[in-house]
Each structure stands twice: as structure tokens, then as C-alpha cells.
Amino acid sequence: MADLSVTIGSVRLPNPVIPASGTFGIGHARVMDISRLGALVPKTVMPEARTGHPPPRLTEAAGGLINAIGIPSVGIEAFLADVLPAYRAFGAPIVVSVSADTAEAFAMMCAAMADTGIAAIELNLSCPNLEAGGRAFALDPGPAADVVRACRAATGLPLWCKLSPNSGIPGQVAEAIEANGGDALIVANTMLAIAFDKEGNPRLANRTGGMSGLPLKPINLRLTDEIARRVALPIIGCGGVATLQDALDYFAAGASAVAIGTATLSRPTTMVHLIDALDAHLTERGLAAQDLVRRRTT
């Protein structure tokens, strides 16, 4: 068996395969051994309880999915009291994904994570579906920097920042995150999209949603390649990963780990199959997972 461990900044993961936030939950423990995953990433938590968007919230399109779930959340207080303890039982590193409407609210949630034993905080800067409207923090360097700076002041925990493929200047956003205390980047979230039914009605109640799955892979793979050239932060590749080759592509582009989302909804055990496939691939070549992490400099 190969050494599958990788390091993301100061965090050591037992293997480089983790769930993408929003597509993973404790329900997966009913169908697979989730303690085998590189990390456990519960759905993004918001400061207050919220229901998310009305249905329909998800549709298949162009070989992928478009979702407008709208980040339903129990709120940070109930999350810490009722949700997080259930994840601790599995032993894998826990990465808590947070999002909010203001930099101050982001920082408040980061501060609340003190002494919880989690490995890192994901700052979901990029979800395009927030009911509050406006541009997502991840679209521009200034707002992204504001959030990271506020969170950095609020916690010593590693901050993994999720970028958006909808930004026209993702490299500048990544540089701003690096300059203000971010510890890693998740590249990237979903891309704004729309789908209609035969009568011309939007298939989602929210009209637009975020495209995920295979159609997103070449887009986020290119983003990974670009950002790996511009910043030294470790990168977790995300978007259309389902197979060993998908993961190897993201490593080749400069990622240190991969996050799996849509493929998990299609086949729940995708992540454990990918861990096994990666193990076989590395064992056959006498390599360790860390050997795949080749940061691009040119």
C-alpha cells in the first residue's frame, strides 16, 4: 500500500481525496466507510438558520448538474451543538465550510470554531446562489481580502478559501487571499448556468444555478493551472473529478488534493473507489501521493 498522505499547509491529510462541501453529509456513512476519506467536509454553515431556495433546486444538464440549493443551514450555534459532534466519531480530519453576508460574520464563525478540534476552515467565498444577492466575495480581490483578513484576525486555524470560476480575475483574487493570510485554495466552486424545460420555463425555481460535474472540469482545471503559477498556496482541485485520471489531471495542473462533489451524487462510493485506484496507481509505480504534488513555476 502506498503512502497516500499529503500536506495542505500545516494540515496532514491521510489521503488527497476529500468531499466538496455541499455534496457530502453524515448520510454517506450509511453507504460507505467515511473514516477512509482524506477529510470530512459538512455542508457550508451560515451564521443563522435558513431554509435555502424553494424547489426545484437541482437539474441535470449537459452531462452535469445545475443546482440552486441556496445553502440551507441550521446556523452556527446548532451546527456546533448538534451537527459537528456526529462527524467527530469517524476520526478523519474535519474541515468546516462557512459562509456569510459580511466579513464580520465570517470572522464571528471562525472565532466560534476555537477548541472544536477541527483541522481547517473552508471560507466559501464563491457561492453564486446567496439570497442576499450582490456579487460574491470571490469575484473581486478586495472583498475576498477583507474576509480573509477578518478571519485571520479571528482564528489561528488554517483558512482554505474557495474560489469562483465566475471571476474574470481569479489570479488576482488568489493573490489577495495569499497576501492576507489564507492557507490554501479550493479551485473552484460551480459556474453560473441556466436550463429550461420544453415549455421554456427555467428548470430551477431560482432561475439560475451553479453548474457542476464533468462539464466544469476543463474550466476549473485551467484555473488550477493558472493559479498554481501565480501563488505558492497549496491548491485543492475541484470540478468534475470522478476518476483516477481526473485526479491525476488536477495534480498535473498543480493541485495537492482533489475535492469530489457531483460524482458522489451519481455514485455515492466514488471517493473510496478513487482512493483505492490512487493507491493501486501509486503502488504500481513505487510512488507516494506527495510525489504527485508538483507545483508549477513556469
Partner: peptide
Amino acid sequence: QAPMACGVGVCQACVRHFRDGAMRIICE
């Protein structure tokens, strides 16, 4: 009934409205 994706309560796509004002997933 509602359109479902994961079946194990993870994706939260299959919500319905309830009379107490809540929206709840129904796959479980």
C-alpha cells in the same frame, strides 16, 4: 414525491413545504 439526487439526505434537493412553515427533505 420530489425529484431526488442522492437518496441519503445529503444534497438537500428533494425538499417539500410543510404546514408548520418548514421545508424538509423527503428522501429519508
